[in-house]
Write a protein that binds this DNA or RNA. Sequence first.
DNA 1: CTGGATCCCTCACGATACTG
DNA 2: CAGTATCGTGAGGGATCCAG
Lengths: 203, 203
Amino acid sequence: MTKRSYQQDCALAHSADLIGERWTLLLIRDLLVSPRRFNELQKSLKGMGSNLLAARLKELEQDGVIEPYASGDGSRRYRLTVRGRALEPAILGLIRWGYTDSKPDTDKGHHCDDWDLLALKAFFQPGVAANLHLSVQYHGDTLSGWTRIFDGHMTIGLGELDDADLVVQGTVRDLFRGANEPELLLSHGTASELDQYMQSFAS
Amino acid sequence: MTKRSYQQDCALAHSADLIGERWTLLLIRDLLVSPRRFNELQKSLKGMGSNLLAARLKELEQDGVIEPYASGDGSRRYRLTVRGRALEPAILGLIRWGYTDSKPDTDKGHHCDDWDLLALKAFFQPGVAANLHLSVQYHGDTLSGWTRIFDGHMTIGLGELDDADLVVQGTVRDLFRGANEPELLLSHGTASELDQYMQSFAS
DNA sequence: CTGGATCCCTCACGATACTG
DNA sequence: CAGTATCGTGAGGGATCCAG
């Protein structure tokens, strides 16, 4: 069987042929935060059948968007290729668009804290943070992640940073939800650094 | 019946709920070029059932992305709302991504010349054209369109401009396909202006 | 236990025909 | 021209089973 296609000679239709099918965009979102194992993806993409997940992974691999690899502990993981990573600007654009009326907390759907790291990056303003060099570690209940601002760029990831300037005891959402008294969550770093950090995101 | 949703508390999932279903992105692409009538959309979206098109139009209207209106000649047309127009940056990003390996002309799928106006805008570089003020009219076999560069922005549209600086006898694709001798297509305007124009697009 | 493959049922989609 | 009605097909959703 061959994949269905829009059969349109148009760059957008071609993108949609590759990443426009159901679940694909959300799958790539997860991989933009960090490489993942099959099971981790399944946990995040609640409602997606395991057969579909396997099929999508295979299609994306054949299209050169993702690639499997053996991670350190011997387990199979999936990560974005260079071509896949090139989707980030477009996806951040869709996040910005969707955020304007998505009203976090009113949706009451499934939620993973690490998605918020990507949303944070979507609203990061390079101009404001041109000369900022700041690493922030988040310690949530179930998982840890970090953001790093350097040379006008922001990078994000899961796990533990060993050189964090700020350490937040809570999630990204905790921090911005309590934006009036954010320093309550700070377990390491200065309030001034935290203020600079929060100033570098739009609205 | 209620629309299916990813039920994820995530801005990208929310975007995907609104515009992630089959054909929706291509439908919005067409409306980004110009408001359209039902029939025009049907012609462009070959393979999409008319029932589906009607359903999508209704969903998008309810979600505040598009709106129907009575155009001058009394016929019903659909156009993007402000919220719908805000999708343009994200869609241009997807066009840029899809273009890198879509190889126009090798696809041999359905093609409408007006899609190329949007692709042109996707590769427009505001920085290069910061002080450029230039309107270009394209006269294709079946349809006419134009681009206007002003104040670092590009706008596009269908139909006839009455104050075009350059008039190209051909489509956008004709112009860039014959980029070695583009002035052959010029029926009005100078070769110097044309050169400035073509310099303001990436790669 | 992870990383899938297989089956089955349902509904979204695609094609066509029909109506105001 | 602008849709609605109908219906067959296949993609998607959920459970279960199997291999390393």
